[in-house]
Nucleic acid binder design. Sequence first.
DNA 1: CCGTAACATGGCAGCGGTTGACAAAAGGCG
DNA 2: CGCCTTTTGTCAACCGCTGCCATGTTACGG
Lengths: 212, 212
Amino acid sequence: MCYDVPMQERTMGLRERKKQRTRAELTEAAILLFTDRGFDATTIEDIVGEVEVSPRTFFRYFDSKEDVVIGFFDDMGVELRGMLAARPQGEAPFTAVRRALGALIELFTSEPERVLAAKRLAYDTPAIRARLLDKHARWENGVTEELAARLGVDPERDPRPRLIASVALAAFSTAVSRWVDSGGREDLKALLNQSLDAVGTGLDRTPPASVG
Amino acid sequence: MCYDVPMQERTMGLRERKKQRTRAELTEAAILLFTDRGFDATTIEDIVGEVEVSPRTFFRYFDSKEDVVIGFFDDMGVELRGMLAARPQGEAPFTAVRRALGALIELFTSEPERVLAAKRLAYDTPAIRARLLDKHARWENGVTEELAARLGVDPERDPRPRLIASVALAAFSTAVSRWVDSGGREDLKALLNQSLDAVGTGLDRTPPASVG
DNA sequence: CCGTAACATGGCAGCGGTTGACAAAAGGCG
DNA sequence: CGCCTTTTGTCAACCGCTGCCATGTTACGG
């Protein structure tokens, strides 16, 4: 985690500004090196060499080498859950999740470069992929709990919350995959709607999707 | 990986037998220690100490510390894909996957202790959980490709194969989670059917599942 | 302006996982 | 028994990561 909330106060002291700068420089250098010569082939020394900072300092900013890449996705889980909690009570659960996913879409598309770089790294780096999947699983747990609360059931005994959560996120995942494959050119929101529609109406009844 | 297919020939020489024995002893010792004192608190030296083997040898049998736990799940991916390929062409895709998942069920329930131990370790060990999720993702890719072939479409352009795969596996996952939570006592096949039914017919229409 | 407290950094030493290289032992076989 | 192949042990090294302590830098009250 390395909780370093930027403290959006004005008059943010020199100290704070310096820290943010270092962190930004480290991330940039790291991602550059990673995408250039590969994650595994890049050592911590390589990274800190670019920023002229000690290796020890690197680990004061990031819990691990992977964190540089995936730290970006940290807040999204709470964001998603928050959005879900904000949906009106009467809404059908799957629909509520669908609406909540809109928030994630916005976060993804607000910094496409960042997301695309991370996903691309995930593609051929097991360590990154694993971390991302784990994050994804956490989101699912959050959504599951929220849905359980909303339905007033125990998520350990009633399968529906987890089921809805995992299916909705699977649809999300699928949409994002396709978005990444398109290099970020296609409309993520449209892709997501397409996936969710297919899932929401029963899979063997999925109409031939118009894709081409 | 560390492909060590046991070579089911009879007259398997002493050499081969010894290897299998060492491997078995290592896995047993490792899992015991892991579940006892925790994965991170267990060092490679601890493990090899029990079996009286050098640390170097450990890494000749397993690619990593995690592999001792998850190596067991290695073949399941190909198994699943094979089962799917064997389904008749006319079958609706989601239904075909459902049938194929039966094979996994059998593997899971054939050695429940092993699976339960692995899942329990995954629960509180990020490293293991990550590896398992990655394996799961690979299964999904396999199913996706197979479905795409079966539908005669390009999985990069048509979302349906991936969607069906991820949703079906999400249902599988949910069922397994519940099975693990029950300590392996509930009927995994029934749980799976329940999940798949709910998913196959559209989620907001899911009837209040009878659980209690 | 200064002194001090609070905090950020650097350096170091160390642990543990992982790998390569080479030499020693042990099984397979004539 | 000897030779060949495979497996094992030893050793050295790299790298990610952490704790500890010293040093430097910023914040702040007098």
